[in-house]
Computed example of a mutant assay.
Amino acid sequence: MPFDAFLFQSFGGPNTKSDVIPFLENVTRGRNIPVERLETVAQQYYHFNGQSPINKINLGIIERLQNAFSQANIALPIYFGNRNFEPYLKDALIQMKADGRTNAISFVTSAYGSFSSCKQYKLDIESACQEIGGRFLAVTKIRHFYSHPGFINPLITNSVAALKKLPHPDRAQLVFTAHSIPVSMSETSPYLRQLKEAVALVANGIKNETGVSYDYSLAFQSRSGAPGQAWLEPDISDHLKALSAKNITDALIVPIGFISDHLEVIYDLDILAANTAQRLGISISRTRTSSDSPAFVQMIVELTKELINNPITYPEPDCTATCCQSR
């Protein structure tokens, strides 16, 4: 059966201050998070008047993708659905059902595999389909793209440009960051291995472009959840303190775990981590993420063609029957 639709899936984010608490309630549903904690997290969004950049970014990617599909003669209408806020995935599927769509390709705005960044998006589709009358739609997800040149090469280019903004770029430490997840989730997913592979690719690319063999490390950010639960470490702020103790004076922050400059990048890195670095006397510069590059959209086109041309034996080697069992 040929593909007849393209589903763009993302996390979602609030558009106004009045959206923030409902959005956070969606994100934390079933976790019994105290209202006081939600109010604390909400302050991050209020800092930007309640508007997450993720919605505008995603709509921009979709617009560019529609043009790229047209140029590549890919006749798939694009539907957009979020997990946690408007436009919701369920509403996108309702429209797809009304339009008679039965076999879709899906793209998720995460390059890596874990329960929250891959499997949960698949389960979201199953749950939403059941709510609107059963499984009417077959969906094949585009593979993890953490090592694809369309994701990696813009990070290399943007990192080389960001290094030039440092006082002493030749002796900078490269600090790659990604969203922390529970250790238990990491242990049943390819997330950490994929991150390390991507880090090595970007670090090697920077070396090839600059002729400098930089020291580099991987840190984590945006931790949530119960204080007693083990999550991937070190936290970026703690890591900057450790670098300061080693007399590191310049650091390039590379948010390799993210495809776009959304709130967890511009708040957790550009504000929180930047403030920590300033207190420590470390000069930092931050790499722009990949999604605003033409290469990123071209990557989606290539991966879509890959599926169209090989719909039956299309591989996803990192997805197995036992992967991503833990939340």
Results as ranks from 00 to 15, higher is better:
Met1Trp: 07
Phe6Trp: 10
Asn15Trp: 02
Asn15Tyr: 02
Ser18Met: 03
Val20Ser: 09
Ile21Arg: 10
Arg29Ala: 14
Val35Trp: 01
Leu38Ala: 08
Leu38Cys: 12
Thr40Gly: 06
Phe48Ile: 09
Gln51Phe: 00
Ser52Gly: 11
Ser52Tyr: 06
Gly60Leu: 01
Ile61Phe: 13
Leu65Tyr: 04
Asn73Pro: 02
Asn73Asp: 14
Asn73Cys: 02
Pro77Arg: 06
Phe80Ile: 04
Gly81Asp: 07
Phe85Trp: 11
Glu86Val: 04
Lys90Val: 12
Asp91Phe: 05
Thr109Phe: 01
Tyr112Cys: 07
Leu123Thr: 08
Ile125Glu: 07
Ser127Val: 12
Arg135Asn: 13
Leu137Asn: 13
Ala138Gly: 14
Val139Gln: 14
Val139Cys: 15
Thr140Gly: 14
Ile142Glu: 13
His144Trp: 07
Phe145Val: 04
Leu155Met: 14
Asn158Arg: 15
Val160Ala: 06
Pro167Ala: 10
His168Thr: 15
His179Glu: 08
His179Trp: 01
Val183Ile: 11
Met185Gln: 14
Ser186Pro: 01
Glu187Ile: 04
Thr188Leu: 06
Leu201Trp: 04
Ile206Gly: 12
Lys207Thr: 10
Asn208Tyr: 01
Ser213Ala: 15
Tyr214Cys: 03
Ser217Ile: 03
Arg223Ala: 11
Gly225Gln: 05
Gln229Cys: 04
Ala230Lys: 14
Ala230Trp: 00
Trp231Gln: 04
Asp235His: 10
Ser237Gln: 11
Leu240Asn: 08
Lys241Ile: 01
Ser244Val: 00
Ser244Gly: 14
Asn247Val: 00
Ile248Gly: 01
Leu252Tyr: 03
Ile256Phe: 06
Gly257Trp: 01
Phe258Trp: 07
Ile259Gln: 11
Ser260Ala: 15
His262Tyr: 05
Glu264Leu: 03
Glu264Asp: 11
Asp270Ala: 10
Leu272Ala: 14
Asn275Pro: 05
Ala277Cys: 07
Gly281Lys: 07
Ser285Lys: 07
Arg286Pro: 12
Asp292Thr: 14
Val297Gln: 05
Thr304Asn: 13
Thr304Gly: 12
Thr304Cys: 15
Glu306Ala: 14
Leu307His: 07
Asn309Ser: 10
Pro311Leu: 13
Ile312Tyr: 13
Tyr314Phe: 14
Asp318Tyr: 07
Ala321Leu: 03
Thr322Ala: 11
Thr322Leu: 09
Arg327Met: 12
Arg327Pro: 00
